[in-house]
Design a protein around this nucleic acid. Structure first.
Length: 428
RNA sequence: GGAGAGAUGGCUGAGCGGACGAAAGCGCCGGUCUCGAAAACCGGUAUACGGGUGACUGUAUCGUGGGUUCGAAUCCCACUCUCUCCGCCA
């Protein structure tokens, strides 16, 4: 949510920023409603002040054994009615303002490249060499099937298209990756591991920015009005909802692995082949609550923590900075990490690292106290995948495959998998 | 799912419908004392929005939303959450 105060003081700045991300705005409506709201508010305050004063007087008389005049009582009853009318007015105005504010995306930071589509994203750097194969590397859907570790047909049997199952070494590989990544982030990057619910209330999704605008991308349980999380970012954001964090508690870094549920109505096609784009997947998510002064620096650290996962797995990757037009709703600045997949011959997005500045903090009322006497301030929130499964599994299978159909396991995972290769299955 | 109890400030915990933003204690911050610390003592310690250069001041907030009343933390209704017992269960 954007600051109403900022909209009030510098509407042009806000308008330009929103336009840069392709967002038409209804700022003048907000400003008009806000003027009305402030008018009604101060009028109500004055009436209430008057009523409080008279009521106190009535009480004083009463304790002195006297009664207030019927005239005064009648007048106060009227004031009460006016107050409730104004309150109703304020409530309605606030709701309208809220609705508009809730639908406006975050403002891009000044250094975000201008652009309208993903074509305008900027490659920041590239790491690692594409492996040279002396055979034609298979895409994971062939490889996985051949090795008997990925079964897409059975996933569809259980749950429909774009669900999958993994068996044996494939399932183990994913579990090993999760454990290893969590250990890496907690032991070397300073994150605290959290275990979270995968079902959340509407309020949690509003705090994170997914609702009300993106309801059609989410799975919803009607019966109990609970929603399946699209990412751990949602529950983590709400961990400190409506809180004022004490001095010294920032930066506060969390890492969590949760299943992620994404209700996408994408037509079947090249992008949906295999398990690149599925409706349920696991993701290790890093999240930080930081001071506003440090958020840009912390974003670079967060990004490096995610890149570190790729480097240690020896997966070639590149980092993109998203242009204004490609930013997510709540993001002010985003880097994507893409790993090279030798089999599909394409870059796969495995991480998206963003700063949401104070956008989520304002929605979820997350503040901190800089020092013992200071007034509370909104925190800045950052999030980034570290990393998303099963795409890392795909990249490992495709990049580490051998001519005989076996797959080597990256060294750092050996203690976690308990095996160093996934052996080829003899054909026939 | 059935029966009961409860929800007050960072925490514990008072609060006959009228000066209650809320006693007291703890914690925290500042000060006195000390070479320093502890103890002791003194003072200060919620949030949001508005007005004023400022001291200060108005309004709202006692789980949430309604209602009664000139006036609600206090009375009434609904909801939510927590706890205890029973049932079910990984």
């Amino acid at each position: 949510m954007l600051s109403l105060e900022l909209i009030r003081t510098d509407p042009d700045l806000v308008r330009r920023a929103l336009e840069s991300r392709g967002e038409g705005s209804s700022l003048s409506a907000v400003l008009e409603l806000d003027t009305q709201r402030r008018g009604a508010l101060s009028q109500g305050d004055e009436l209430r002040a008057h009523r409080n004063q008279v009521s106190r007087e009535v009480g004083r008389l009463r304790s002195a054994g006297q009664e207030a005049s019927a005239e005064v009582i009648r007048e106060m009853r009227q004031v009460g009615d006016q107050v409730s009318q104004l309150e109703e007015q304020v409530r309605s105005l606030e709701q309208q303002i809220h609705e508009i504010l809730f639908s406006l995306p975050n403002l891009p930071l000044p250094d975000v490249p201008q652009g309208s589509t993903e074509e305008d994203n900027v490659v920041v750097r590239q790491w690692g060499e594409h492996r040279v194969f002396d055979f034609t590397p298979l895409p994971h859907w062939d490889l996985g099937e051949q090795l008997g570790i990925i079964d897409i047909a059975r996933g569809a049997k259980l749950s429909g298209s774009r669900f999958y199952t993994m068996f044996g070494a494939g399932a183990k590989l994913e579990r090993a990756l999760i454990s290893w990544m969590l250990d890496l982030h907690t032991q070397e990057h300073g994150y605290t591991e959290v275990m979270l619910p995968a079902l959340v209330k509407k309020e949690s999704l509003e705090g994170a920015g997914n609702l009300p605008k993106f309801a059609d991308l989410l799975y919803h349980d009607e019966e109990d009005d609970l929603w399946l999380v699209p990412t751990a970012e949602v529950p983590i954001t709400n961990l400190h909802r409506d809180e004022i964090l004490p001095p010294g508690s920032l930066p506060c870094s969390y890492v969590a692995c949760t299943p992620c549920f994404r209700r996408e109505k994408v037509a079947a096609g090249r992008d949906t082949r295999g398990i690149k784009r599925v409706l349920q997947f696991n993701k290790v998510e890093m999240y930080k609550l930081v001071t506003p002064e440090s958020s840009e620096e912390e974003l670079e650290k967060l990004l490096d923590n995610a890149e570190d996962v790729c480097r240690r797995l020896q997966l070639p990757y590149r980092v993109l900075q998203l242009c204004t037009g490609d930013l997510g709703f709540q993001s002010a600045k985003t880097y994507d990490i893409e790993v090279w997949s030798a089999g599909c011959q394409e870059w796969l997005e495995v991480s998206s690292c963003s700063t949401c500045t104070d956008f989520q903090a304002r929605r979820a009322h997350i503040r901190y106290r800089p020092s013992a006497q200071a007034r509370p301030q909104l925190v800045h929130t950052l999030n980034g995948s570290g990393l998303a499964l099963p795409r890392v599994v795909i990249a490992i299978l495709e990049n580490y495959q051998e001519a005989d159909g076996s797959v080597r396991i990256p060294e750092v995972l050996h203690p976690y998998t308990g095996f160093t290769t996934i052996p080829a299955v003899p054909s026939g």
